[in-house]
Design a protein around this nucleic acid. Structure first.
Length: 423
RNA sequence: GGAGAGAUGGCUGAGUGGUUGAAAGCGCCCGCCUCGAAAGCGGGUGAACGGUUACCCGUUCCGUGAGUUCAAAUCUCACUCUCUCCGCCA
C-alpha cells in the first residue's frame, strides 16, 4: 500500500506502474477525494482549535467564579459542526483507503515489461529433462499403483482437490519437510517457526491477499478467521505493528504449513493429481530486511530455494516474471519451475518475491536504523522453499523406473531409510 | 463456558473531567567534566495528518468503537486482547 501523499505527489508513476501490471486505475476519483479531504481537515482543525481555546476560557472563568452558561451555549453549535465535519472526513478517508488498498505494488525498474506470462524471461536452466527409455507414467497413476497416494478416498472425506498420503507416501512427505527445514535452518540461517494456520482479516490485508482476493480464501463459518493460503501470511504478520531493532536485521524465518486455497478461478484446471489442491503443503521462507539490502536478499532467497532442487537433482529453470505476471504485491519476482514429465513442461514449484515496503506499510512493520533514529518501514520478501506436493509429484515422475518403482534422491535416503519405493 | 483483574510513550509505571502529549524512573541522543571511559551534572528524546517547508504552527492519538459534556486518559456502553482461579479438553 502507498500512503496518500505518495500517490498525490507521484500520480504519473503510480498510473504507469499500475498499467504495467495490466490494470487500469484513473486515480481521478482518488485525487478529488484527497483534495476534498484536505479542505475539510483544514476547516475542522480551525474549529477544533477554537473549541480548545474556548474550553480553556470556560475553565479560567469558572476558576474566577464567573458564570459561563452563555459561552457554553455558543459552544454547543460549534461542537455540532465539528461532529458533522469529522463524520464527513471519516467517510472520505474510508473511501480513500478503499482505493489505496486496491492499488498494486509498482514493479521495480529492472523488471521485464510485458502483459502476461508469455513475456517472462527464462533466466537459467538446471539439469536437463531425463530422456525416458519407456513411456513415463503420471504421478497420479504411479502413486496409486504404489499405494502411496489415494485420491478416491480423499474425495470421500473432503471432495475434489484433496489427497491422502499413505505409507511410504506419507513418509516421503514428512521426509521432505524435515529435509528442507533442516537445510534452511542449519545451512541458510533461517529460524524455524510453526505459526497458527488460521489468520484474521487484518493479516490477509497485511500481506496483500485482501481486500482484492477474498474469494480465493476459505473462511471459517461465523468467525472472522480464514484458513491461511500460505505461511507467508502468518509469518509476515508475526511482526505486525512492531518497530524492530535495526541491529537484529535481517530476520530470516522458515515455516512448514499446510496451506488452503479455494482455487475459485481454476475450475477444471489441473484436476488430477497433486498439482492443484485445496489443501497443500509448503515450506516457506520469509525475510525482513533493510531497504538497501532487499534486492540482494531476493537473490540469496532464490538461491536458498534452488538449493533444495540441486540436492534432490530435479531438472528446473528460473523465470524472471514480467510486469504483467508479478501479482498484486510484488515489486520483483522469480518463479522456479521444475520439470514434470506428465505435463511435458515445467511447473511452478516456488515464487520468490521482493515486496519492498508494500506489505510493511499494510502490516505496519518498521525498524529503527540506529538507536535514536526515526523508524522506517522494513522490506519483506518471501518464497516457497519449496511446495511439497508438487515436489512429491516431480520425484515420483522424474525418478520412476520402467517397472513402476521409484528410486529416491540421494538426499532423501537418510530420511526415508530406504533407497526405493516399490510395490 | 463461569468468576475476577488489567490494557497509558522504546520499556517500567503515576494520573482528582479543565495549561496532561501525559509525572517519575530506565533506555537513548547532545553537551560539561575526563588523556579516554564510568559516575556525576545540564539539556533533549513518540507517532500520524494538515499548513509552511528555514524555523515553525495547528489538529488528532492513553487497547478498539460508540456515547455523555462547553471540555474525556479520567464518566457510560459494547467489543477485542492479556493475566489469575474454576470447569472442560489434546
Amino acid at each position: 500500500m502507498f500512503d496518500a501523499k505518495f500517490v498525490r505527489n507521484n500520480v504519473d508513476a503510480v498510473r504507469a506502474g499500475v498499467a504495467a501490471k495490466g490494470e487500469s486505475l484513473t486515480l481521478d476519483n482518488f485525487l478529488a477525494l484527497d483534495e476534498g479531504r484536505r479542505q475539510k481537515v483544514t476547516a475542522v482543525e480551525q474549529l477544533k482549535a477554537e473549541r480548545n481555546q474556548k474550553s480553556e476560557e470556560v475553565a479560567e472563568l469558572r476558576r474566577q467564579g464567573q458564570d459561563t452558561t452563555l459561552l457554553q451555549e455558543n459552544m454547543k453549535a460549534l461542537g455540532q459542526e465539528v461532529k458533522e465535519l469529522d463524520a464527513e472526513i471519516k467517510e472520505i478517508e474510508q473511501r480513500l483507503e478503499h482505493i489505496l488498498l486496491r492499488i498494486p505494488n509498482l514493479p521495480d525498474s529492472d523488471v521485464p515489461v510485458g502483459p502476461d506470462e508469455s513475456h517472462n524471461k527464462v533466466r537459467s536452466l538446471h539439469l536437463l529433462p531425463r530422456q525416458f527409455a519407456f513411456a513415463p507414467k503420471a504421478h497420479w497413476d504411479l502413486g496409486v499403483a504404489l499405494d502411496i497416494l489415494d485420491f478416491e478416498r480423499a474425495g470421500k472425506i473432503a471432495g475434489a482437490r484433496f489427497a491422502i498420503y499413505r505409507g511410504l507416501g506419507a513418509r516421503l512427505m514428512r521426509s521432505l519437510i524435515s529435509f528442507m527445514l533442516n537445510l534452511h535452518t542449519t545451512e541458510h540461517g533461517y529460524v524455524e517457526v510453526a505459526p497458527p494456520l488460521l489468520v484474521t482479516y487484518d493479516n490477509m490485508v497485511g500481506t496483500g491477499q485482501f481486500p482484492k482476493f477474498t474469494e480465493d480464501a476459505f473462511k471459517i463459518a461465523g468467525q472472522e478467521l480464514y484458513l491461511n493460503p500460505t505461511a507467508e501470511v502468518p509469518v509476515t504478520n508475526m511482526h505486525r505493528d512492531e518497530v524492530l531493532d535495526g541491529m537484529q536485521l535481517p530476520l530470516y524465518y522458515t515455516a512448514y504449513c499446510p496451506s488452503f486455497r479455494a482455487e475459485a478461478g481454476a475450475a477444471g484446471r489441473d484436476t488430477r493429481g497433486l498439482i492443484r489442491m485445496h489443501q497443500f503443503n509448503k515450506v516457506e521462507l520469509v525475510k525482513f530486511v533493510r531497504p538497501e539490502h532487499s534486492s540482494a536478499e531476493l537473490e540469496t532467497l532464490l538461491a536458498d530455494a534452488c538449493q533444495v532442487l540441486e540436492r534432490l537433482a530435479i531438472p528446473y529453470r528460473i523465470l524472471e516474471m514480467c510486469t504483467g505476471d508479478l501479482g498484486f504485491a510484488a515489486a520483483k519476482k522469480y518463479d522456479i519451475e521444475l520439470w514434470m514429465p506428465s505435463y511435458n513442461r515445467y511447473v511452478e514449484i516456488s515464487s520468490c518475491s521482493n515486496f519492498r515496503d508494500f506489505q510493511a506499510r499494510r502490516a505496519n512493520i518498521k525498524f529503527r536504523p540506529q538507536k535514536g533514529a526515526k523508524a522506517e518501514y522494513v522490506h519483506t520478501l518471501n518464497g516457497s522453499g519449496l511446495a511439497i506436493d508438487r515436489l512429491v509429484a516431480a520425484i515420483l515422475e522424474n525418478y520412476q523406473e520402467d517397472n513402476g518403482s521409484v528410486r529416491l534422491p540421494e538426499a532423501l535416503i537418510p530420511f526415508m531409510g530406504i533407497e526405493k519405493i516399490t510395490n
